[in-house]
Structures are given as structure tokens and as C-alpha cells.
């Protein structure tokens, strides 16, 4: 448990460990091992209410295990977790009444039609007049565009149709929290776009919190409010997406500078001056033609950097600054940056 927290502080993690006031999901040191294999290592997660929270990581990172732990489908080896303030171990039944879940590669009963499948799911949540249940089923079919295939046996459904059915069954109870494991997998670009739209609408119109995993980083950047990145069971970062893109994932704020120097010596002098500052955590330099340089500077103290960085460089005689600004990474860059650093043990 401690190891992971220490790792994350070394990484300069942002909000992990802090309790978001209106968190729907919270875990503390949630760990799952299978024999000697650690599937999830002391996960501290906090998913804010009414947000779309992207859960990223390579295959085998522990995303599905986390979701199953939250739903009470597997039991933690240690640690704890809560959803809506209810314990995931002792109050899992109450939690499942308020949650919708779409599994990765969802499987249903092949002898049922799409309509029968949704009716089957709805009856776990509600009893009452058939007409009310049927109405709910019809709405869900319509929401995902399966009305015209409602009475076909799902044994013959394509991967995309199964995914849509999965989304329909996950939201049939108007859940306060949707847990979606790879919801856009096996969908074509149009289908993906529609899934993202449905997710955004559920958040905006029904205040649903959506916790989802995906490999499609573009989708995450388009629709998510916050993200967490997991690798080999370890949480590498957790932050609002804007913060993650600004800071590059590894903590601090990243600035880019374009410089021209009279000689290599003056550039070296400027670099040494900047590097000596306690609030600078790294400085990467790429060479351009002549005495031109491009620096990527990571600062741990944003205000110190914005007040002093440019001044420090310009203090060196013979150095001119042709460009300066805060760098905003793509999620892909931030993701690979974190994974590679996490994997090489540099964090």
C-alpha cells in the first residue's frame, strides 16, 4: 500500500489520495492478488460525482479487475472501497441497484431476443405493471437504435449490435453511476461517436456519473472530465483531463522555449542557470540549425516558473528568446510518457 502511495508522490500525482467532496467512487489501498500475481496494487481512486471519468491503461493493467471489485464480483485481497458512500464488500447489493454495468466483450443468453434481454434485466430492478416495464424496454432499445432488431435472437448479433445492447441494458434502471468496460470497443467510428454522445447526454441531462475504461485515447480526450492511468496494477496518475494535458502527466507544468544564442557557451550558461533552480525538475533540449535550441522545461512550481523562467534565460548575455509558452500535450503523449516512465521505474 505504502509503496504505491510513495510511488505516486514521486510522480507528483495530483488528486490521488485526496477525497473529492462529492466523490461517487472512492477506494483506499484497494489491492487484488491472484497467487503471486498482483492484479491491482493499493489503488486510491476518487471519481467525482456527475463526471465522465476515463480509466486508461494497457491490457492487463487492472482496469477490469477494478470494475469487478467495485461491483462485488471479485473480493479484494486488502484495502477498501465505497460507492455512494456504501461499502463495496458489505453493501454491494444496495450499490448494484443504483449502478449500470457494461462488461468488456459482453455475453448474453443467446436464446433471448434483444427485447427479452432488456426485459430480463429490467425485472432485476423493478416489479410492477408489464406495460411500464415494456415502455422502459422500448425507450432503451430506441436510445441505442436497436428498435428494428428488437425481436431478433441475439445469437446472431454482430459485435457492434451486442455493444449497443450492452449500453441499453446498462442504463435501463436510470443508474446514478454507469461502469462501462470498453464501451466503444468493436464499434465503427459512427457507433463510437454515438456512444460518446449518449455518455455525454447521460451526464448532462440525468447527472449520471460515468466511469469507463478504454484504449481509444481520442475518445477520452473528447468526452472525459477526469482520467486515471493505470499500469500493471499501479495508479500512475489521476487528474482532471485539462490538468493532465497541461502538466504532461508526470507532475508539474511544462514550458517550451525557443532560443537563439551567440555561441554554444552562452546557451550552456543559460541552461545551467535554469537547471540550478529548485523548482525546475527537468530540462530537455533539442538542437535546431546553428545556435538555435528548443527547450522543454518541467517546473514543479507554476508561479515561480512564470515569474522567473523567462527572466533567468534573458539574464544570460547573448541569448535571445524567440518563443515561450506553456506546453499542452495530447493525451496520447501524456499517456505514453507516463507509461514509459512508470514501466522503466523512473518515476
Amino acid at each position: 500500500m505504502t509503496t504505491s502511495r510513495d510511488d505516486r508522490s514521486a510522480l507528483g500525482e495530483y488528486s490521488g489520495g485526496k477525497s473529492t467532496p462529492a466523490a461517487v467512487i472512492e477506494t483506499r489501498g484497494l489491492t487484488k492478488t491472484y497467487g503471486h500475481v498482483v492484479a491491482l496494487k493499493a489503488l486510491d481512486l476518487s471519481v467525482p460525482k456527475n463526471s465522465i471519468f476515463g480509466f486508461l491503461g494497457p491490457n492487463g493493467a487492472g482496469k477490469t479487475t477494478t470494475m469487478k471489485l467495485l461491483l462485488g464480483l471479485v473480493r479484494p485481497t486488502s484495502g477498501s472501497g465505497s460507492i455512494f458512500g456504501k461499502d463495496i464488500l458489505s453493501e454491494d447489493f444496495q450499490i448494484r441497484r443504483r449502478v449500470g454495468y457494461l462488461a468488456q466483450d459482453p455475453r448474453y443468453y443467446g436464446h433471448m431476443t434483444a427485447r427479452e434481454t432488456l426485459r430480463f434485466v429490467a425485472r432485476f430492478f423493478y416489479s410492477g405493471p408489464e406495460s411500464a416495464i415494456e415502455r422502459r424496454v422500448d425507450e432503451s432499445l430506441s436510445l441505442v437504435g436497436l428498435s428494428d432488431r428488437a425481436d431478433r435472437r441475439i445469437r446472431g448479433f454482430s459485435g457492434g449490435e451486442l455493444q449497443r445492447l450492452g449500453l441499453a441494458q446498462a442504463q435501463i434502471n436510470d443508474p446514478e453511476l454507469l461502469i462501462l468496460d470498453e464501451p466503444a470497443a468493436s464499434l465503427d467510428p459512427m457507433g463510437r461517436r454515438d456512444v460518446l454522445e449518449i455518455m455525454a447526454r447521460l451526464r448532462d441531462e440525468q447527472n449520471t456519473t460515468i466511469f469507463y475504461s478504454t484504449h481509444i485515447l481520442d475518445d477520452v480526450q473528447r468526452v472525459s472530465d477526469s482520467v486515471a492511468i493505470l499500469e500493471r496494477g499501479r495508479l500512475l496518475a489521476q487528474a482532471p483531463i485539462d490538468e493532465l494535458l497541461t502538466t504532461g502527466g508526470a507532475g508539474g507544468t511544462v514550458y517550451e522555449l525557443a532560443l537563439k544564442g551567440e555561441s554554444g557557451a552562452v546557451l550552456e550558461q543559460a541552461r545551467a542557470r535554469v537547471r540550478s533552480q529548485s523548482w525546475i525538475s527537468s530540462l530537455e533540449e533539442s538542437s535546431e540549425p546553428g545556435w538555435e535550441r528548443r527547450w522543454t522545461v518541467r517546473a514543479t512550481d507554476e508561479s515561480a516558473a512564470e515569474e522567473n523562467l523567462l527572466r533567468l534565460v534573458l539574464k544570460t548575455r547573448g541569448v535571445r528568446v524567440t518563443g515561450f509558452g506553456r506546453k499542452r500535450q495530447s493525451l496520447e503523449e501524456a499517456f505514453f510518457d507516463l507509461i514509459e516512465k512508470g514501466g522503466s521505474g523512473e518515476v
Binding site: F125, L143, D174, L202
Partner: peptide, 28 residues
Amino acid sequence: RETLETNGRKTAHKDMEKPEEQAALKPV
């Protein structure tokens, strides 16, 4: 998008589902 918005859950619940039916559904 248009169809989705028209058939959205919130809209659907408000406009399509009869209030007495909605109230008659009890949690299991």
C-alpha cells in the same frame, strides 16, 4: 444526434411514460 435527443431518457421519461406507470414500478 437529433433522434437521440428526441428519444433521450430524460425526455422519454417525462413525456412518454405515464406518471402512474412510473410510480407503479417498485424496486425489487
